[in-house]
Structure formats: structure tokens, C-alpha cells
Design a protein around this nucleic acid. Structure first.
Lengths: 159, 159
DNA sequence: GGTCAGGTACTCGGATACGGGTTGTCCGAGTTCCCAGGG
DNA sequence: CCCTGGGAACTCGGACAACCCGTATCCGAGTACCTGACC
């Protein structure tokens, strides 16, 4: 079980967009170059964020991506769901209803105990993700590297 | 992000082993046939459980797999870790230290805020898994299908 | 000088190849049981 | 009848392919800007 690389890229990109300022759109190529990532693939992840309503996109020169709403209104869960998709990690295949061990019809209606337990654990994960928003991430990152926002803005201003 | 099918198979197999009785070993082929699964592949998952000390294996006729300890002493986390491996789903690639955006050395030492937040959520998931043991799963399954253990034992007794 | 048309450069967006990992399969080493032969 | 040796069958265990999703890439549609000519 491995999470997509795109999640980390998308999260960093959101923080970078916040640092770049709310007025200026940044292209996928520029965001990718900042961390030496494949530009076209990062673009794919940003498209997912745009579909989820986390960022807005504009084509043409001076186009690019902007945050659709303040970082405080974007949770980790939003980004993970946008990039990874809404499906749960554990999908019950209902193997208990296959082969000679197929249960009685009465048991079929009830939820599989295993699926229920796994879903409960996954819900805890989702709640923990939803409880943290990107603004908290940004604040912590700024405490660790106070000069990062200024450096990014200076680099973006240079051609 | 998708969890391996083997997790569901391993969990069902553990419950089935408990139902089959603590004295009798059950072969992987028999456990697979009960739910119409690929025998050789289920064997692979059971090997992982054996390496983790959840079940014991014995070769030869009358051999097979037995539970190494009571179901109450096996948590969901144990099984998931045995089958999926101990690695975390989210691996921080430290992209913040790549390209022009590479932070100052002081920031490098500190943990990436994103990785920290993701790890916290994953810890909640792991705790939720560790808080549930397989005996609770078994009890719930028996409430839903009281005749299941007897049917399994009867089917195992038949040649 | 102001206005307008054309061209150009730049952006996203979806359609298109490649690779690693999960899924699935196979055969060999080892053990147990059964059976036949001998005492 | 009891003991012993050999063979056969069954089991796990690890090594070997096939498929699928995540990774990476490319080119086309659309837009804004800039340039130049014209009024």
C-alpha cells in the first residue's frame, strides 16, 4: 500500500501558491522547476486540484494556477481525496460469499465484520486528515524556514 | 492508494482457523477452496503470517497452518503489517530540498511539516487497527451467522 | 496619436507510452503416513 | 503377532511470469499580449 507521489507534490504546491501571493497565478512549469519535478506530471496533479475546486486555472500568458480559497479552508483530506480519488484503501471483495463457505442469505445482508472494522480504522485516518488544514502546515513551515516565502517570491519575479 | 487483497484473505483465514479448532492444522489449499481463492497465492499470504508469528506452519501430510496464539492476542494491525509490510503509506521524498527551492541547512534538520502531519494521520489509523483484535471480529461474525463454525468444521471433516 | 487586426508565445487539458509492483503460477525440499516384508 | 525399511503422497517454501495501476510524456485548443499598419 503506497500513496501517490502526487499528494506530496500537490501539498507543497498549495503552500507555494499561498506564498506567491493571492493575486498572481503561477504556471505548473514554474512550480515544478522550484522543486525540480517533472512539469507535465505535476500539471496533471494540479488539474486534479482544479477539478476538486481547491485551485483555479487560467490558460494563456499570465495564466496558471491560483488558490481558490484561503489555505485555512483547505484540509489535508481535501488534497488527498482530490489526488488519490475518493475510494477507500480497503475494498471488501465479499469473499465470504464465494465457494462452499458462502453464508446463509440472512448473513449476506449484514455488513462483513472485517470490512466494518477496516472501515472504522480508515475513518479515523480520514478524520485526522480532515482535522488539519494547510494553513497550519504553512505556519509550521515558516517557523522552520522564515525566509522561504521571500525567496520564492524573488525567484518567481525573476524571468 | 489500494490495500492488497491479501489482507482480506488473511483475516478471513485467521477466523476460519479459529473456527476449525486449535488442534487441527488446515492446509492452504483447503482454506482457499472454502472461499474459492487461488490456493498458491493464499499460501503466499499465509507464509507472511507465519513469518510474523501469527500462525505456525507444518509441512507434510496432516500439516498446514495453525494459529500461533489466541485470536484475542492478534490485532488487525498485526495482520495488516504482516501482509502489507511495515512501511508507511506516505513516504516523504523531501522534494523541498530539491531544485532552487532547497531550504537553508537549518531547515533541513527539522522534520518536513507535511510529512509530520501525514504521519500523525497514519498513526491514528494504526492505533485504530491495533485497538481491534480478531476475536471481536469472530464474535461479530458468529452473531451474524451462528451456524458458520459448524458448517466449516463439517466441510473440513469431509474428504 | 489612437484604434484595430494579425501573429506569436504561452498556458492548461486530455490523450498517449513506459515501468514497477501487486497478482498469479509453478516446481522443489521436507515430512509424515502407509504398506509390505521379515523376524 | 510385532518390528523395520522403503516408497508414495501431501505439505510448505521460495523462485518464476502476467497483468494493472502509477509514472511520465507529448501534442492540440484556447487565450492574452505584443507588434505593426492604418485612420
Amino acid at each position: 500500500m503506497k500513496m501517490s507521489e502526487g499528494v506530496e507534490w500537490a501539498l507543497h504546491s498549495c503552500v507555494n501558491l499561498a506564498w506567491s501571493g493571492p493575486d498572481r497565478a503561477v504556471s505548473a512549469a514554474r512550480l515544478a522547476a522550484w522543486h525540480d519535478l517533472p512539469a507535465a506530471y505535476l500539471n496533471k496533479q494540479l488539474q486534479a486540484l482544479a477539478r476538486a475546486g481547491i485551485v483555479t486555472s487560467a490558460p494563456g500568458p499570465r495564466g496558471g494556477f491560483k488558490l481558490a480559497r484561503p489555505l485555512a479552508a483547505v484540509s489535508l483530506m481535501d488534497v488527498v481525496a482530490a489526488v488519490e480519488g475518493p475510494e477507500e484503501a480497503f475494498r471488501c471483495a465479499e469473499i465470504r460469499q464465494q465457494g462452499p463457505g458462502a453464508g446463509a442469505p440472512a448473513a449476506d445482508a449484514a455488513d462483513c465484520a472485517i470490512a466494518h472494522a477496516m472501515a472504522r480504522a480508515e475513518l479515523a485516518w480520514r478524520k485526522a486528515l480532515a482535522a488539519q488544514n494547510l494553513d497550519e502546515i504553512r505556519q509550521q513551515a515558516e517557523r522552520q524556514a522564515p525566509g522561504a516565502p521571500a525567496r520564492l517570491r524573488a525567484w518567481l519575479a525573476a524571468p
